[in-house]
Amino acid sequence: MILKTVRMIALAAATATIALSGFASSAFAEQNARISWSALTTKLEQSGYKIHELDEKHEGWKAEVIDKNNQRLKLYIDRQGNITRQKIDH
């Protein structure tokens, strides 16, 4: 009887651990999902940028663009498509 109870508790703990690890890994994968090239180009063009070059980097993207004021910029974009930094490109 005691052995059966111990086995049931161990099985329940193992099941909970597996379920939680699956949830954590799917949340991690979703957080690190990369925006697609086509979605990013659409987003940049809708924001008024003319894209000259778009490079995929490990941490995200780097884009050379011209903004609405005809200024050349380098944009550094995270994996989700958010501009994290910009520099004037000479």
Rank of each mutant, 00 (worst) to 15 (best):
K50Q: 14
K87E: 06
K87L: 05
R85K: 15
A14K: 10
A14P: 04
H52C: 12
S26G: 02
T41N: 07
K68D: 10
A10H: 12
F28E: 09
V65E: 01
A19F: 12
R79W: 05
R79N: 10
Q31W: 14
T17Y: 05
N32A: 03
I18V: 15
T5Q: 14
W61P: 00
Q86D: 01
I77G: 00
Q80D: 06
E59Q: 11
Q31M: 14
I77M: 00
A13Y: 06
S38I: 11
T15W: 06
H90G: 11
Q46M: 11
A63E: 04
T84P: 01
E64G: 01
G60P: 00
E45L: 04
M1G: 14
N32E: 07
I9H: 07
N69R: 04
E56P: 09
D67C: 00
D55P: 08
L11C: 13
H90V: 10
I35F: 01
I83M: 10
G22F: 08
G81S: 05
Q86S: 07
G22E: 07
K43G: 02
S38V: 11
W37R: 14
H52Q: 15
Y76T: 01
S21V: 06
G22P: 02
W61F: 02
E30Q: 09
A13T: 08
A24L: 09
T41C: 05
Y49F: 15
T5R: 14
K43R: 11
A39W: 04
L54K: 10
R72I: 09
Q31I: 12
G22C: 06
L75D: 00
R85Q: 14
H52F: 15
G60L: 01
I66S: 11
A39K: 11
A33K: 07
E30P: 01
L75Q: 02
I9G: 02
A19V: 12
Q86Y: 02
E30L: 07
T84Y: 03
L40M: 01
W61Y: 02
L11K: 13
A13K: 10
G60V: 00
G22M: 09
K62I: 03
N69D: 07
H52L: 15
T84W: 03
T17K: 03
S47T: 05
D78M: 08
H52S: 15
R7L: 13
D78R: 08
T17L: 08
L20C: 10
L54P: 06
W37I: 13
G48F: 07
I51Q: 02
T84F: 03
E53M: 14
T41S: 08
T41M: 10
I83E: 07
D55A: 15
S47Q: 14
Q31N: 14
K68G: 05
D67V: 00
A33N: 04
E56L: 15
D89G: 01
A63M: 09
A13S: 09
S36Q: 04
Y76R: 01
D67I: 00
T5E: 14
I35M: 03
D78G: 06
A29I: 13
N69P: 00
R85G: 06
Q46W: 05
D55K: 15
Q71N: 09
G48R: 07
K87V: 03
N82E: 12
L40K: 01
S25A: 08
Q31A: 15
K50S: 13
E64Y: 04
F23T: 10
K57I: 12
I51L: 05
K62H: 06
D89P: 00
L40S: 01
H52N: 15
S36M: 04
T17D: 03
F28D: 10
A16G: 07
E45A: 07
I88F: 11
Q31T: 12
T15V: 11
N32F: 06
